[in-house]
Design a protein around this nucleic acid. Structure first.
Length: 268
DNA sequence: AACTCCTTCAACCGCGTGCGA
DNA sequence: ATCGCACGCGGTTGAAGGAGT
């Protein structure tokens, strides 16, 4: 006894969409709006599964989609978000207007994974590849995003540092032997559901507001939550949200209220 | 030119979740 | 509390095109 199929398989087309099918779907949604995907194919005269219609619309036909290559900035945003959220492609897509979860997922698998590998970073954990091999253990009492990707990378003890650079909130160090090491990159999530900020350089102006422990507002009361900056109402977290007029924890300038439970921005 | 291998990305599939009955 | 439906998500697949030999 399995789940009932989402549609009548025998009488549905599969594979690539034709121009005519696209046109039918577009004109139907323009006339009736999105939603009711299950009944849409029949109503629109399409021999397609409702799920297929939804996917085609969301990933390809929607008018607000941004087509074309990803920018460097978008790359870094994706990496940064992935280090915090893991493979939550829809949440990541929510932060990149005009990009879809499917597009970002594909882009991650084809480009960014390789890019991180070439930087010596494990794309799954966001740890230095060297370090990840040596340090697979997760500390007790720590919920790690590791599969999901957070990590604090230990500093190599006797490497002489010749230069530093900052990437997506982490700090890369070039050692004398030419190896690059990620010092602190992605924060760990402990049982208090707080995220420690990455260590920042003076030059990391947009990320300076990370110089406090980040709390997702999940403590029992505001009293318990020590992450709120009492002197500054424009930052800090209250009632599961943080209002900030400067930059949020991802380094985005924003003017709204970030809801950490829903992982979405409420506009002021 | 012909073949194989690799890369990309649209599309599919199964499962989890929310919600109303 | 339970069930079924609809939707959304993330992992995977496979066709198409490009690169290499």
């Amino acid at each position: 006894m399995g789940r009932s199929p989402c549609c009548e398989k025998a009488h549905t087309n599969k594979g690539a969409w034709t121009k005519e099918e696209d046109d039918r779907l577009i004109s139907y949604i323009r006339a009736h709006g999105e939603g009711s995907w299950r009944s849409l194919p029949k109503a629109a005269g399409l021999l397609r599964c409702g799920k297929s219609c939804r996917l085609r619309w969301i990933n390809y036909l929607r008018p607000d989609l941004k087509r074309g290559n990803f920018t460097e900035e978008e790359d870094e945003v994706i990496i940064k978000l992935h280090s915090l959220l893991g493979n939550k492609w829809s949440l990541i897509a929510g932060r990149l207007p005009g990009r879809t979860d499917n597009e970002i997922k594909n882009y991650w698998n084809t480009h960014i994974r390789r890019k991180l590998m070439s930087r010596g970073i494990d794309p799954a954990t966001h740890r230095s590849l060297n370090d990840a091999a040596q340090n697979d253990q997760v500390q007790p009492n720590t919920i790690s995003f590791a599969s999901s990707a957070s990590a604090v990378v230990k500093q190599e003890q006797d490497t002489s540092i010749t230069s530093k650079s900052s990437t997506f909130g982490g700090v890369m160090e070039n050692n004398k032997d030419g190896k690059r090491t990620m010092l602190e990159h992605c924060p760990d999530l402990n049982l208090e559901l707080t995220i420690s900020p990455p260590r920042l350089n003076e030059s990391d102006e947009p990320f300076k507001n990370l110089e406090r422990s980040l709390c997702f507002g999940l403590q029992n009361s505001n009293k318990d939550c020590n992450c709120v900056d009492g002197n500054n109402t424009s930052s800090g977290i209250r009632n599961n949200t943080t209002a900030t007029s400067s930059y949020d924890f991802l380094g985005f300038k924003n003017t709204g209220v970030w809801d950490y439970r829903r992982l979405e921005m409420k506009l002021n």
